[in-house]
Every structure is written in structure tokens, then in C-alpha cells.
Nucleic acid binder design. Structure first.
Lengths: 349, 349
DNA sequence: CTGTTAGCGCTTTCAA
DNA sequence: TTGAAAGCGCTAACAG
């Protein structure tokens, strides 16, 4: 089970006819710290032997693990893989990026923070549902870099925690406004309890208030396609469909789309449907779903960039709060309301 | 940037009034290796101090990193997150599981193998598009555990490489047969070049041959929704639609579904469509897509299980080859062919 | 500019 | 049953 004899700095040193410490010094890299003649010999030895530094020895010595944890509620949720992949890509090959699924549970979030505090991770990047800045205090003071991805602006305390966020509240308001501008008056929202999606409901309410329209929010069992579907089924049963339906996320919107389609209700002819997140299935839905792109890859990349800056010492001091743009992706699932509600039309455009 | 003074075995030892080596011995765990009185004192000290072993020191000493790499072509492809999450879950908390995106490129696959050989990873689990058993030889001999996930049975050489596979060839044949049994005669397939999906084409051809029907395979630009869509657009242009369309993966099938829907072709009324993989969007498509479930979570879990067995020494000797079941998930997108091809009907059921 | 030295925290003989 | 000692491969003073 042991790994075969690996090439160490000592081997390189012997081959190059210098001391092991000189090899280390050379690797540390300061411009002309090593005589160019020696440098060449070492370089040659490294190449011939195929030397690669042992990251564990290095970690032990430097107290830096060179691994960061990318914290997500559930990598199986189509929203996160892109975020993770982008974070991983921007961290480069020096760092190992491990994905940690928390399930949005406090204990799991605490566990990663604790692990980081113990030196297992140099940095934490990702989405924390339950932990607030103060929960990171010990870790941050101990030198752990933290970059969070949020759904709304954060206070930005004195702690060295960087935040990247998209203003979901504003995005929801704009999306609602888009529907309003199209002529819709009865716009209802589907959401579930808790989660960062809550601010989307606020945005919707704000926009409706502003327009002098009544906000109606239906609570689903979960932020899933099934959750969205059930709500719409109930609406259908009572024969009370609005002209536009805004779902707190794409999964719910797609569930709604399905039920509507099966009931022969035309989208967007009879009712317009919009979602949130711009996950892949949204573009594949029929009709294609109008949604808000949060650009999860950019979020991951940006957050990882901030993390990297902390890690390399390029950034210091209190945390930065950077806002990232969203985009309303207008697709086929929305259109102007029919003159008369709930009449049957063609199934798609 | 340094991590704060961590609790070490030495601290525990001092507190318990024993030597550091004794703490280590205790942790190693052999039943009564340590006097129970001592054991209690050490346990108490560990609890009070909140000691956790330093994995880097341990890795340096034991030459085992306690991290395994889960190798996937692209974590962003909806097929892989479930596989990764399952592998991660079964590896337990002792192991860190890092996801490595290879993009299916030989160099990237080589790079992980090399990294493992250098001791960065104790094990490799996942999908390798380009590397064959012999490419793992050095690593395996050096003690790296390897468990691959394949699309068809492997020879199972003398090397200690475990393989988990679903017989994609047979799955494709059965799916084709399902269509045949429904009464379809003109069944055509959409595939792209290369990849493990190739064996699916073989299975399709075999089933068609057996039924005495002509196999027609259309080559798409890529294994994507766009790739599938383009092929169907071309068919539509030539007005040559078969009664059933078998796509090499769900993404292509969904692309096909979209184009068909937009052209007003009824599915499954006019043409039946089936895919492969059972990714989430398949269940969300309209109509819901008939596909082959490969149970990627089971694949990941099983492969990780084999890896773990190697790692813990529970398994030894030549690699095991274990076949995993597939399931044909019959959903709304297929049905019996219309009496007359290509006539217009309702868009959905 | 290069080498010596002292550990980082841990496991593992080997003695006591 | 416990402890002393060595050393995994590396970095970082410090001397020379």
C-alpha cells in the first residue's frame, strides 16, 4: 500500500551536487538567490529525475494545506456544478478544490469551518445558508480565507470576509416589472419556505406594491419541480389562474410548465411563466423558460478570485463586497396577457 | 496567514500525563494496547482540548494522503454530479474527495494519474475516456487504488484495477427492441463521434439487424441538445422523419424534442423519441423523455466502495469487474407508431 | 551565494 | 504497557 520511493529534494541535490537546502532555496524562486550556474544544474536534475514537491511535507512545514473547500448545499442541484467548476478553474492547479455538500445544514457548515480552523483547508468559498459572519470569526482570525456567495448585499463588517452577491431582490423586482410592462395585472408567485429565495419574494412584493397590484404568494412544499407542479394543480382545481406566474426558481417554474402543458393551458398564450437561476433545464424546457441568469460561473470565478487574492496576500484588511450583475433572459414562456383570461389557444409558438 | 497554534498530540500527552508516543499508540487503537486507566485520561484530554490529528503530518509519515480523486469529464454535465456526490458520500469523512474535470482529454487524465503516482491521491475513481489499464500500471504498482466506471465490460487483466460497468450495448439493444415491440419499423439513431456512447450505437445496430431492419445512424456535431436539434432540423428539411428516434444521450434527445415540438410534430403521436442517461432534464422535458437509467449514483457508490475496500486492504489481488443494472424508464415520449407516418396530431397527451 | 540546523506533527521500531 | 528516538520531505533562519 505504500507509495513507491518518490523523488525528493535530496535526490535532486545529490544529482546536482549541491545541498538539499539549496534546492529548496532555488525552488523558492527569488530572482538571483542562486548562482545561475547552480540554478542550471538543479533545473537539469529536476527535469531528469522528474521531481515534484511533496505537498504534505510542505503543508506540514508551512502550515498551509493548499486545499480550499468549495461549499455548496448540494452539488446535485444544477445550480452549483458550474459555480464549483469555475471556482476550481480559477484556483489553478496549485490548489486542490474539494466540493463540500452541506445540504444547507448548520452542522455541516460548522464542520467545514472547523476543519478549516484545524488547518485542513486554507480557504472557504461558496454558499453558506446558515452561518453568519461571526461564525467565521475564529477561523478568519486564524488565517483562513473566506469568500461567500450571497443572494443580497451584506453588511461587510470588520472581518476579512469577502462577499460576492447578486441582488436577487432587485432581480425579482425587475422580472416582475417586465411582466407588468407586458400588460399583466394578475401576477402570482410560487415559493417555498426559507432559503435565499426569500428575498426574491420580497422583490416581487415590492414591485407589485409599487404598481398598486396585489401580491399573491403560493407556498409550495419544496423548491422543486414537484413543488411547483402541486401548486399549479391546486390552482387549476379551483380554476383560478393568474395571467402570469413567477416561480422562485427554475425547477418550480418547470414543474408549473409541465402541469400547465398537460392541462392544455397555453404558455404564454393563457399564462406566462418565469423562473429564476437559468439552470440548464430552463433552456431545454418547452416552451423555453424566461428566467433570471445569475451567472453562477462568474460568481464562482469571482469569489475564488477574491479568495486567491487573500491567500496570496495580494488583498488585506476588511472584506470586500462585490456586486455581480444578473440578466433577465427573455425566452418564449412569457408574452402579453390574453384579452380574456384563461381561454384556450395554441400550445406553443 | 499562519494557522493559529493547533492542538497536537504533545498537548494531549502533557495534559494526560503520558508521552506523546503513548497518545499516538492509543489513537492507533489496538484493543488493550493501552492500560484502560491511561486510555481514559487520554480520552478526556482529547475531549477537553478538542484535539484532531493533523492529516498532513500523518500523510507525510504514512505516505498516504487520505484524498482520492473523482475523475469526470465534466462536472457541469448533468450526468456526473450524482456520481460524484455518491462517491464522496461512500468514501466517508476520513477521505477528501476532489473532483477532477478532465474534459475527456488524454493529458488531463494522465495528469491525475501522475499526481496519484506522486502521492497526491491514494485512489482514483471515475470515468476515464482515453486511458487504458496499462496506463495505470505504474500507479497501481506503486499502490494507488483505481476503480473505473465503464460503459461496457472490460477484459479485467491481472492489474489490481476494479471496474464497474453498465452494459450500454445491451441497454441500447433493449431500448431499440422496446421500440420494435411497439410496432416501429423505421427507427433511426442520432449520435456524435467517439465517446463511450459508441457502444450504444452498436447495441442499436445489433437489435435492428436481428429484427431485419435497416439501421440508420445520423452523426451530430456534438453530444449536446444543439447537436440533436440540428440533426432533426435537417431531417425536417428533407421531410424524412422515421417513426422513432433514438438519441445517444438525453441531451440530444431533448434537442430533438424541442425541434419536433416547434415544428408541430406530435411526440409520440408522429414520432417517438428516446434518450439515454436519465439526467434530470429528461424527467422535466415535455413530453417526459423515455430513457435508460444508468443510476449514476449507484455507479459512483459502488466504484467508491471497491476503492475503499482496496484502500483499507479488505480487497486484494486482480481487479474485480462488476456489472450494474440499467433500467428502461418508459415515459410519455414513446408510443406505437401512427398508422400513417408524419401526420399532424395533438402536441401532447 | 550555499550549507547547516532545527523542527512542522505524526507513526513506528525498539528498549525499558 | 509505556517512552525515547528517528525520520517522513520540506522551509526558514542563520552562519559561513
Amino acid at each position: 500500500m505504500k507509495r513507491g520511493a518518490r523523488i525528493t529534494q535530496k535526490d535532486v541535490a545529490v544529482r546536482a551536487g549541491v545541498s538539499q537546502a539549496t534546492v529548496s532555496t532555488f525552488l523558492a524562486g527569488g530572482d538571483g538567490v542562486v548562482a545561475s550556474e547552480t540554478a542550471h544544474r538543479i533545473e537539469a536534475a529536476i527535469a531528469e529525475l522528474g521531481y515534484t514537491p511533496n505537498r504534505f511535507a510542505r503543508a506540514l512545514r508551512t502550515q498551509r494545506s493548499m486545499v480550499v473547500a468549495c461549499v455548496v448545499p448540494d452539488i446535485t442541484n444544477p445550480f452549483y456544478p458550474a459555480l464549483f467548476a469555475a471556482a476550481q478553474a480559477t484556483m489553478g492547479s496549485e490548489y486542490d478544490v474539494v466540493a463540500i455538500n452541506t445540504g444547507g445544514a448548520a452542522e455541516a457548515e460548522d464542520a467545514v469551518i472547523a476543519a478549516a480552523l484545524q488547518g485542513r483547508y486554507d480557504g472557504l468559498v461558496g454558499v453558506f445558508f446558515t452561518r453568519r459572519a461571526s461564525d467565521f470569526a475564529d477561523a478568519v482570525r486564524a488565517g483562513v480565507a473566506v469568500a461567500r456567495i450571497e443572494a443580497h448585499p451584506k453588511a461587510g463588517g470588520a472581518l476579512a470576509i469577502d462577499d460576492v452577491f447578486v441582488d436577487n431582490r432587485r432581480a425579482a423586482a425587475e422580472l416582475t416589472q417586465t411582466l407588468l410592462d407586458l400588460g399583466h395585472r394578475r401576477i402570482e408567485m410560487i415559493a417555498a419556505a426559507g432559503g435565499p429565495e426569500t428575498v426574491r419574494v420580497e422583490g416581487y412584493r415590492a414591485a407589485m406594491d409599487r404598481a398598486g397590484r396585489e401580491a399573491v404568494v403560493h407556498t409550495a412544499r419544496a423548491y422543486s419541480a414537484a413543488g411547483g407542479a402541486e401548486v399549479v394543480q391546486a390552482m387549476l382545481r379551483r380554476d383560478k389562474l393568474p395571467t402570469a406566474l413567477l416561480a422562485a426558481n427554475d425547477l418550480m417554474a418547470i414543474g408549473a410548465l409541465r402541469v400547465l402543458g398537460e392541462a392544455g393551458v397555453a404558455v404564454p398564450g393563457d399564462v406566462s411563466v418565469a423562473g429564476f437561476d437559468d439552470i440548464m433545464p430552463a433552456a431545454l424546457a418547452m416552451p423555453q423558460l424566461t428566467t433570471v441568469a445569475l451567472h453562477q460561473d462568474d460568481l464562482g470565478a469571482r469569489a475564488a478570485g477574491l479568495l486567491l487574492a487573500r491567500l496570496t496576500g495580494a488583498a488585506e484588511g476588511p472584506g470586500r463586497v462585490v456586486e455581480m450583475p444578473f440578466d433577465i433572459v427573455a425566452r418564449a414562456s412569457i408574452g402579453p396577457p390574453a384579452i380574456q383570461d384563461t381561454q384556450r389557444r395554441r400550445t406553443s409558438t
